[in-house]
């Protein structure tokens, strides 16, 4: 089957999934205790004011009617208005999502750049230094909660040493100056596109601490799976055969073995990436990162129905898209896999 047909079919699958997710999220958020109209209007508002707000948001109508109306708007691309920000939810998502995406990509790159070589080195020499380090990393990833690491990291590198910035995506002055036009919303790419190395450097500098903390979620998994997969591959006859071909050991390991060993790493990494996108709430909270995690956190606090639903739907789309991408790359990497 051709790649585009496969991708098309997989994307079509999004429709029932999104319907289900929206249904569950919609009704779950409504049965939660609390009254958003009361929250917005404030404690001192009169009942009359609250009722007016409720009518304005359509909260006074039957639930099912609300849901159908919501769906019909979503189909037209309108995710509704955020109760808190009073802006369209789509605009909010467009503002906040790129920050999260940038953070997740940075964490993923860090994971791959550190995790794969570490896993390979650990597999090559059992009981060697790399093997021990990878053991510690695996343990640390399980044992240390991310918010704790984030807080301690902030304390050391920002507060005590002052090496790294404490919050945000850019220095305040730079942020205000609007130095680079937003094309992708990813500051690192936008600044490169604009050729502004000062902003580029600053954006990277702000990424270091949050991305490192976030990668603590994915790094242990990637190290562990790389190590075990590489160990298995090294026992395979085709590795011996590659040596018998007289290829330099670097090529035997780095090409013949690694390309096989990466297949399971890729699927774990892909799943983790979806997790990073959804699971960065705590890290964004600690580092004041203006991302979707922080937005979701705030909207749940305020029972901002439309915002919560918008975030959930976006997360679903992203997760499924990432999985689709992983499958496609997977098939590229392993020719024995046929996309069905």
């Amino acid at each position: 089957m051709s790649l585009s047909r496969y991708a098309g079919r997989r994307l079509l699958l999004l429709v029932p999934v999104l319907l289900t997710i929206s249904l569950v999220t919609f009704f779950l958020s409504r049965v939660l205790p609390g009254d958003p109209a009361r929250l917005i209007a404030g404690v001192n508002a009169s009942d009359e004011q609250v009722a007016r707000l409720r009518a304005e948001f359509g909260l006074d109508r039957p639930l099912f009617e609300q849901y159908v109306e919501y769906l019909s708007r979503v189909v037209r691309g309108d995710l509704g208005t955020s109760i808190v920000s009073r802006r369209s939810v789509s605009a909010d998502l467009a503002d906040f999502f790129p920050a999260t995406l940038e953070l997740a990509i940075a964490a993923m790159v860090l994971t791959a750049v550190v995790g794969i070589p570490l896993g390979v080195a650990a597999a090559l020499r059992r009981g060697g230094i790399a093997d021990n380090i990878s053991g510690v990393v695996s343990l640390a990833g399980v044992a240390l909660p991310v918010f704790w690491v984030a807080t301690v990291g902030l304390l050391i590198f920002y507060y005590k040493l002052g090496w790294l910035p404490g919050s945000g995506r850019l220095d305040r002055a730079m942020l205000m100056s609007n130095a680079v036009p937003s094309r992708t919303g990813l500051l690192v790419f936008d600044s490169l596109l604009a050729g502004n190395l000062r902003v580029f450097g600053n954006a990277l500098w702000h990424l270091v601490l949050p991305a490192s903390c976030l990668s603590l979620v994915t790094l242990p998994r990637v190290v562990r799976i790389t190590r075990s997969s590489m160990r298995e591959v090294l026992e395979q006859p085709y590795v011996a055969a590659a040596r018998a071909k007289g290829l330099p050991e670097r090529r035997v390991i780095g090409l013949h073995a690694l390309k096989n060993a990466l297949i399971p790493v890729l699927s774990i990494g892909g799943l983790s990436f979806g997790f990073l996108l959804g699971g960065s709430v705590l890290v964004e909270q600690v580092f004041g990162w203006p991302g979707i995690g922080k937005y979701a956190f705030d909207s749940i606090n305020y029972l901002d129905y439309n915002a919560v639903l918008g975030v959930t739907l976006l997360a679903t789309v992203v997760f499924i898209t990432v999985n689709l991408l992983v499958d496609v790359v997977y098939a590229r990497l392993d020719p024995r896999i046929r996309l069905r």
């Binding site: 395979q236 085709y238 013949h256 990497l333 020719p335």
Partner: peptide
């Protein structure tokens, strides 16, 4: 000096 292995399927790299 070169070598031919018994099980060619296992001795050829499956992803190249």
């Amino acid at each position: 000096i070169s070598m031919v292995f018994q099980d060619a399927l296992a001795a050829l790299n499956p992803v190249l």
